[in-house]
Nucleic acid binder design. Structure first.
Lengths: 200, 200
DNA sequence: TCCATGATAGGAACACGTTCCAGTTCGTCC
DNA sequence: GGACGAACTGGAACGTGTTCCTATCATGGA
């Protein structure tokens, strides 16, 4: 529990602090959207957020923490937007593919941002576990909801399946952001994996 | 003049180069084995390989290229050692699990080395495509051979399956090297994925 | 033998993540 | 209002990946 950004989003001490944290994350997303991982330079983030470099490091102990936290905020935002929307598709695999394709399409529309966030996610070590776990849970519940809409508690098997699919999705995403696969190939790879696992 | 060079006189030029390349990769593996990604510092590699920093960069244009090349050499070495050994197991999934567990066990016996190579692999961009493709091919053929021993040309489906399994393996490996999963969890995750995909 | 050419050595210099510090401002309690 | 501690600012400084430059060395051709 060392590297907590000590303050949870809900109960920050003061408006000034909430402001700073938000400004920092906004600047991060902005810079990442424009130029990807390399463009998110700590001095540039601090400048744009109008905080000192030391303050930036007080809120986020490393560039990786910063990016993963930003990823968490974005992911939560888009997940919340979908949460109450019915996923189209007659079978579990159709729905899973639809939800993954939707998400992937969203990511591919801001390639630089996706590159920055994926790189950070892949480079993160155990000290970022909390932030990463949050993202993993969101993805998992997204997938189990797609498999069994309306069901509250997914079975252990469903969670395992969601995890495997999530792994394939992540690998495909890495292949795409690192320029080793095209967008079409990532889509095909995910679709093939889903059909292999959820054969229906 | 040392007498350590055992190669013939007319090959001296390229032999010297081969020598340097080998020394560099040896130093890389050695440093990575001891301290992981962070310990592979370009100045340290150059020192230990007894080449100048500029020479190191002439052979490998970045730390990532260096590590991925080292990974390729190691992977090839161990793959070659297995190539002519029969994989135990009565079913395809048993054999696939065996071959993956064997490989994983090998990796987990040098955790620092694995951490360094996996990080590099995950961080590599398109400029390292060639080296990465080589590793991917080795892994793929290892898996298709485990599925259908003795068969020369794997079917398209087999390749797709191998790829999905490889993705899960990679994700599990990343989880392990970044300290987010234990060795036992990676094994369980891989086993579950193989059973989900190759149900037999 | 001598020269042209490319490879190497040695090392300075730069960029960016990270750490650290001295001084200033802000919020809180008396 | 004053005092005190926490947070913030501005900036220097350090480590490591990367680039660049000059001098030296090795090799093959004239």
């Amino acid at each position: 529990m060392s590297a907590t950004n000590s303050l949870s989003v809900e109960d920050l001490g003061s408006a000034a602090q909430r402001d700073r944290r938000k400004r920092i994350l906004d600047a991060t997303i902005d810079l990442a959207s424009k130029g990807g991982f390399d463009a998110v330079q700590m001095r540039a983030v601090a400048d744009q957020a109008e905080v000192a470099l030391g303050t930036l490091y007080r809120y986020f102990p490393s560039k990786i923490h910063l990016l993963v936290s930003a990823l968490g905020r974005e992911f939560e935002r888009t997940a919340a937007a979908r949460r109450d929307v019915d996923i189209p598709g007659d079978t579990a695999s159709e729905r899973v593919i639809n939800v993954l394709k939707g998400t992937t399409r969203g990511l591919q529309s801001s390639p630089h941002l996706t590159e920055a966030l994926t790189r950070a996610f892949m480079f993160a070590d155990a000290s970022v576990q909390a932030e990463i776990h949050q993202v993993g849970m969101l993805l998992s519940s997204m997938l189990t909801r797609a498999m069994h809409p309306g069901q509250l508690e997914p079975s252990e098997d469903d969670v395992a399946i969601a995890r495997v699919i999530g792994d394939v999705w992540l690998s495909a995403l890495v292949g795409w952001v690192t320029g080793r696969m095209t967008a079409a190939e990532t889509g095909a790879q995910i679709e093939r994996a889903v059909h292999l696992i959820l054969r229906d």
